[in-house]
Design a protein around this nucleic acid. Sequence first.
DNA 1: CTGAAAGCGCTTACAG
DNA 2: CTGAAAGCGCTTACAG
Lengths: 355, 355
Amino acid sequence: MSVVECAEGKRLSAGHAPRPRATIRDVAALAGVGIKTVSRVVNGVPTVAPELAVRVQRAAAQLNYRPNLTASNLRRRDGKTLTIGLLLEDIANPFSATLHRAIEDVARAGGVAVLAGSLDEDAARERELAVALIDRRVDGLIIVPAGKDHSYLLDEQRAGTGIVFVDRPPCLLAADAVLSNNREGGEIAVRHLIEQGHRRIAYMGDYTSISTAQERYDGYLNAMREAGLPVDLSLVKHHQHTVAAADEAATALLLSDAPPTALFASQNLVTLGAVLALRRLALQHQVGLVGFDDFILADVLEPGTTVVAQDPATMGTLATELLFRRLAGAEAPVETIIVPTRLIVRGSGEIPPPP
Amino acid sequence: MSVVECAEGKRLSAGHAPRPRATIRDVAALAGVGIKTVSRVVNGVPTVAPELAVRVQRAAAQLNYRPNLTASNLRRRDGKTLTIGLLLEDIANPFSATLHRAIEDVARAGGVAVLAGSLDEDAARERELAVALIDRRVDGLIIVPAGKDHSYLLDEQRAGTGIVFVDRPPCLLAADAVLSNNREGGEIAVRHLIEQGHRRIAYMGDYTSISTAQERYDGYLNAMREAGLPVDLSLVKHHQHTVAAADEAATALLLSDAPPTALFASQNLVTLGAVLALRRLALQHQVGLVGFDDFILADVLEPGTTVVAQDPATMGTLATELLFRRLAGAEAPVETIIVPTRLIVRGSGEIPPPP
DNA sequence: CTGAAAGCGCTTACAG
DNA sequence: CTGAAAGCGCTTACAG
């Protein structure tokens, strides 16, 4: 019944004697031409006698020749490595991963490879990784920044490297950016809870040093103010960076003497922490919850989690297209693209406050 | 209340005149030394007069000099680019993303950057991407393969590129591999359902061309056989590759004249499809379910989803360590490391069959 | 300890 | 249409 996947017996083995790769010189020798002719054939330059071209192609195939991109890049006029760098908060985080995939798809279509790394909110690591990528002479850099000073990239930008920021704006550097409308998204989330009748709405969010967290908090404040509701600072919990921390903070809020009737969780992991806390206290059908940033299975929970969703795929696509336009020589002034968020109603945000 | 994130007024602007990067020659000229001395200082070679070293360092800092890694690699004896390639099923898929992060962490510790790409189960794309990475002269390749013939990598392996397969074995090529014990994991899952009293257990899985799907199916067959249970092929649904397809297949199974009393979902997305189908039919507390591969929020569902969990982080770490050992010159025979799976009991797998 | 010459694999700029 | 010479930014191998 079962298919044998790989015929072990046929496995080819490399053995222990390393055999160097064929170079343009080897191909030229085998084909009996100069290396420049091989170069022409490999690069598809049409002014080669058909007979010679065939001989070169045959020789290249026989030697399994692959041109050394890093060598050609060294001498080539445009100096392009056909490689870009991507700095993410955490490669494994779903927001980052979706962004990454969209970037990969646009890059691949242009024959460009992507070097990616995780910053974990560490400004020093941002700089280290950026330099590591610059040392490899990437054509461009797409950055979800951890730090607050990007002037160190100025020389690189001057040298012609394309630089686009995503999710968070650059600081002390004029560069393109693709951002979510975080403040407005926060307003939408909190207004939605207010419309259900809530007045005591808690804010839970990540480090205030993260610009998106700050903007979403601003949205919370705006929506409360606009409805004439007081902001009770005992209901504001900043600096939640993990599910566990958010779970703990939400639990404390819900068990307090004057608990909120609804929660605004301004980030992915914070929302999960809130979901866990509500369930443990069996309050998931009593207390309202709106999260910022969508997550998988949000619609399968009971109740489904109402969120203000970002669109990381679109952000990645737009950022990469913008980068490629710059690399192609677009001289337009620095641009900031705002990608809209949208409310997805699923149940948790439509729970009214107790009468 | 709100912190101003970036002072717009202070933004430095690159202007329109590109300024070329400083080279080793520029640094040498400014420091008044030969380029070889700059090379020594940059590479930390100690036999440089302290006074000269200081002059070089000052000049390098002043010019914001960054050595061109791709140029040094060209001439350097070992020819290392300090870059490895990673071919994944889909960068955005949680299993791939976790694997990727573990690989990144080991690589970064060694000063190595990671070029990653998605194959989407397409053998042609595997080959294209592998070649694109080879053209960039990566030191090594970590591959979750889509294809069934890896002999095209033989020359590359001979040339000294480290090649390690993860999650699925190589075919027609002798290379290191790090795999889950898929067959045994499938046995564990199905045995667990049998222990609850189930006899009519459905198998739902991905394309049989994927070796892991085939092995997990083998595990299902083994466990059934070992318990003396007949395998009803009408309860076997292969080729489920998306949540929607699995949802549909599970729905059809559950609504059939002779439905199963439990489901074994042999993959991530298939499990989600099964969860959705069970909930829509309100059977989630009646029909047993064990999934293969853990997923976020599995413990928050009602009932929690019992799974046989893989350990992608460990797989990534081991694969990268193995790769680095090879690159360091380890001549041991080709190795296959099996990473164990484990059953996580959460409720859905402990539902007994109807009496 | 220091640096001028040669060369990595390729492309550019130039003769033939 | 073709190829020998020079050079990309750096390191190696070698004199001083």
